[in-house]
Amino acid sequence: MKNSLKIAALLSITALPVVAAEHVMLEARAEVMNAAGMSIGTVTINETASGTPLVIVALTDLPEGSHGIHLHETGDCSAADFTSAGGHIAGDAEHGVFAENGPHPGDLPNAIVGADGELNLEIFNADLVIADMVMDDDGAAFIVHSDPDDYTSQPSGEAGSRIACGVFEAG
């Protein structure tokens, strides 16, 4: 019985529901590129009827394992190591869900990539203000890191190098 519950849980994670278009409005979209400059998918940030932004990640060709993923403060992926994207969108918060004054609005949960290299994830982010944090004058970027975020280390969770980046543009 326990194995069938584990299988059902895994299937529910990999078979994400399709969001009905009438419930969301696309606000921002980023085409994500790896360090070789190849497109590996998209990330969208959508406004919902409740006002809670929905981040949808659909990426391929990533290394297997756990990866920190974040929304970064500057819409610039021009540096070879993607450091041009700046730090996380921080607002007035500390980094990580384990921090007393956390998390940053740009902190997202670690993403687990399977042997197939695919990352598909939907995240509601009540701390994110799209107009002020993503679509502001200097824009924002989505970053995939080489390692998992530890959810505590300041200012960025010791998530390793930046292996993919995408700049958000108006939807």
Rank of each mutant, 00 (worst) to 15 (best):
I56S: 13
E22K: 14
V43N: 01
L5M: 04
G68W: 02
I130F: 06
G106V: 03
P109S: 14
S66L: 15
T152P: 00
G51L: 10
E31S: 03
D138G: 10
D137Q: 14
D76I: 06
F168S: 05
L5F: 04
T74L: 07
I7P: 04
A28T: 08
N34K: 09
N120R: 11
N110V: 04
A9Y: 02
G106R: 06
D116P: 09
S161E: 09
D137I: 04
A140N: 12
T14K: 14
L71A: 11
V167K: 15
A8M: 02
V144C: 08
G114V: 01
M38Y: 05
S50T: 15
S12K: 08
A115T: 14
D149F: 11
S156V: 03
E73H: 06
D138I: 12
T48A: 07
L62P: 08
L54E: 08
F142D: 02
A35N: 07
A85V: 03
L26Q: 10
A15K: 13
P63W: 12
T152G: 03
A140V: 03
C77F: 01
M1R: 12
E118F: 02
N46Q: 14
M1E: 12
L10I: 07
T14Q: 15
A170C: 03
G91H: 03
T52N: 09
C165E: 04
A164E: 00
S156T: 00
V144M: 15
A131I: 10
H145N: 12
G160D: 05
N101W: 06
T42H: 10
H23L: 11
A36W: 05
H72I: 08
G41E: 05
A21W: 01
I89D: 07
D127P: 00
L54P: 00
P148Y: 01
N110S: 10
A126I: 13
A111M: 15
P148N: 06
G166Y: 03
G96V: 10
V134W: 12
K2I: 08
G51E: 02
L121A: 13
D127W: 02
H88R: 06
